[in-house]
């Protein structure tokens, strides 16, 4: 229930760690390490290396993504960086530049 939400006007420069879902509508720079789900909403901007279980990107991510379960790049997202995850979904309309590694 207690989703952590980074609101649209919020800018975080630093490191986020934790054990619960994270919804990003604002801007996060630095590093994110979670063991749960991350949703980067349409206006969300992430300039960080991301470690998580699953990540769903509607907005923009610049940085490497390492997901233990799944990485979803939805339509109209922009992702620059390497993605490492067992399951990677890239929707029609997504913009992505980087390396994909689905082996581990």
């Amino acid at each position: 229930m207690a989703n952590t939400v980074i609101g649209s006007t919020i800018v975080i420069d630093g490191e986020i760690t934790g054990d619960e879902d994270l919804v990003i509508l604002g801007t996060v720079k630095g590093q994110i390490s979670l063991r749960e789900n991350i949703v980067v909403e349409r206006d969300g901007v992430v300039e960080a290396n991301v470690e998580t279980a699953t990540i769903t990107v509607h907005g923009s991510v610049t940085g490497d993504i390492q997901a233990t379960d799944r990485a979803e790049l939805r339509a109209e997202c922009r992702v620059v960086g390497d993605i490492r995850a067992p399951r990677i979904l890239i929707a029609d309309g997504a913009s992505f530049k980087g390396n994909v590694d689905m082996d581990g």
Partner: peptide, 22 residues
């Protein structure tokens, strides 16, 4: 009217700026 929430199992280290409730 939205609000930023840092949940009980989250730790943030660094700088936080914004124009909404936290």
């Amino acid at each position: 009217a939205e609000e930023t929430l840092v949940g009980p199992d989250i730790a943030i280290r660094g700088r936080i700026e914004g124009e909404e409730d936290l």
